[in-house]
Computed example of a mutant assay.
Amino acid sequence: MSDRPLRIALLTHSVNPRGGVVHTLELAAALHEAGHAVTVLAPAAPGQRLFRQPPCAVELVPVQTTPRDTVEMVRSRIEAFVQHLRGMLARERFDVLHTHDSIGGNALARLCDAGDIDGFVRTVHHLDSFDVPQLTQWQHTAFARASQVLCVSRLWREHLASEYGIAAQEVLNGVDTARFSPQARSSDAALAQRLGIRRGAPVVLALGGVEERKNTARLLSAFALLRASNPQAQLVVAGGASLLDHSAYALRFRALMQELGFDDDPPQPVRLTGPLPDEDIPSLYRLADVVAMPSLREGFGLVVLEALASGVPVVASRIAPFTEYLAEDDVSWADPSDAGAIADALRHALSTRDAQRIARSASRLSGRFSWQASAERHAALYRAAIQETEACP
């Protein structure tokens, strides 16, 4: 096809700052800046809006406020997307319909079945393990029915190939170095005061909330070990707005806090902030002395790029996808199955912090991972798929 601007619909599963949602909005902004006509679609209950407004068009898909359970929530959101998209497709046409999650994938699969669209693109950031068969089925349908599958890491691309025979293409994540910087701002001190973060004491920051795949409970145990040598240390766990139900794990985490003698009220050493406004996040990174990401499973780990760009050392699990794109001295590595190893990595990151080394790592990674390059890669893959479709008799 020609090099004319593409009309692209990007579907995401939430209005909250999850990694896949951040990727969608950053990609949308970069595609928009490249001249494409982009519309972002996100489900929103009454009164909700996207945590960050992209420069392109946005369609908020009305959804229920309080579904009975996760299955009902997913089912109702799939139906909401189907109905909303059907109305949009009656008045406008898209060259590309691209979803970053299973909710959008199932909605688009249903529209394919009905003949409303010819195909769709799905990005698999990571796959979850569910105890509920219906959720597992929806997850599978969302990538198995896609006409083009993308992944943000080699780990998940190879997993899809070996487990499902799907030939996915790898695409890039990026980091906004204008937004994330080591340069202190007046907002940093104000945020510290508001959240009860002590300045001058080692601050361990974890983003993503309390979740099993984030390994938050084992990080808490590691933090308790760190306090033996750093008694003033503070753990800040931020974020956690998820569509999935993590309540059972959160209860176990709270029980462990009590067992270890921690509370989360100021001036106690553990702070659970919950979701924060988007404008607070750059300051939050700068308040940290180390960012901990001892995850058991990740799609990519955008937090690593953002932390390094903010001048903060990182502890990361020695697993893919981190090992795919990080050099040995970019981070302090940890075995995520061992609280003692995580504590050792935290001590190493704090004791060997080197601003120049972090800056070199951040510069190298930001040169490789940019949202502009990601948009160019996506546009090329979109056009190749369109050309292949048009060439078919």
Rank of each mutant, 00 (worst) to 15 (best):
H159W: 14
I117L: 14
H159F: 14
L160C: 10
P202I: 12
N173T: 12
V210G: 06
F130R: 15
G165P: 03
G119C: 03
A167E: 11
H159N: 07
S181L: 09
V149K: 01
S162M: 09
D128M: 13
A161I: 05
A184H: 12
Q148G: 04
H100G: 12
A114D: 13
D176I: 11
A201C: 08
L172F: 09
V210P: 00
Y164L: 10
Q169D: 12
G209H: 11
G196T: 05
A189D: 08
R185K: 10
A190Q: 11
Y164S: 08
V171W: 02
A206F: 01
Q183C: 08
D188Q: 08
F180H: 11
Q139S: 11
D95A: 14
V96T: 01
S102A: 15
L108D: 06
A178E: 12
V171F: 07
F130K: 13
L191M: 08
L207W: 06
T141G: 05
R110N: 08
L172I: 03
Q134C: 09
T99G: 02
A142D: 00
D128Y: 14
A190I: 12
D113P: 11
S186F: 07
D116G: 01
V124I: 09
G104M: 11
H140S: 14
D128Q: 14
L150C: 00
G119V: 02
Q134D: 10
T141C: 14
V149S: 06
V121Y: 04
I117P: 01
V152Q: 06
V149C: 03
Q134I: 15
G104L: 10
F120W: 02
H159T: 13
G105E: 09
A146F: 01
D188H: 06
G208K: 03
D131Y: 08
S181H: 09
V171P: 05
A109S: 13
I197G: 04
P182D: 06
L108V: 06
G115V: 09
L111K: 05
A192W: 12
V203W: 06
D188K: 04
A107C: 10
L195V: 06
S186I: 11
A161Y: 09
L191S: 04
D116K: 08
E158K: 14
T123K: 04
R179H: 13
Q134F: 12
A114S: 14
S102P: 01
V204Q: 01
L108Y: 01
Q148W: 00
Q139E: 11
L160G: 03
F143R: 08
W156R: 06
R199M: 10
H126R: 07
Q183G: 04
D95H: 13
R154G: 09
L205A: 03
A161L: 15
W138P: 02
C112A: 09
D101P: 01
D95E: 12
C112P: 00
C112V: 15
V96W: 10
F180P: 05
A142C: 05
T99D: 03
I166W: 01
G174S: 13
A168L: 05
Q148F: 01
R185T: 13
S129F: 08
G200D: 02
V175K: 09
Q183K: 12
T141P: 02
V171R: 03
T136Q: 15
G119Y: 00
S147M: 04
L150P: 00
Q137G: 13
A190L: 15
V132N: 10
P182A: 05
H126S: 11
R145Y: 01
Q183V: 15
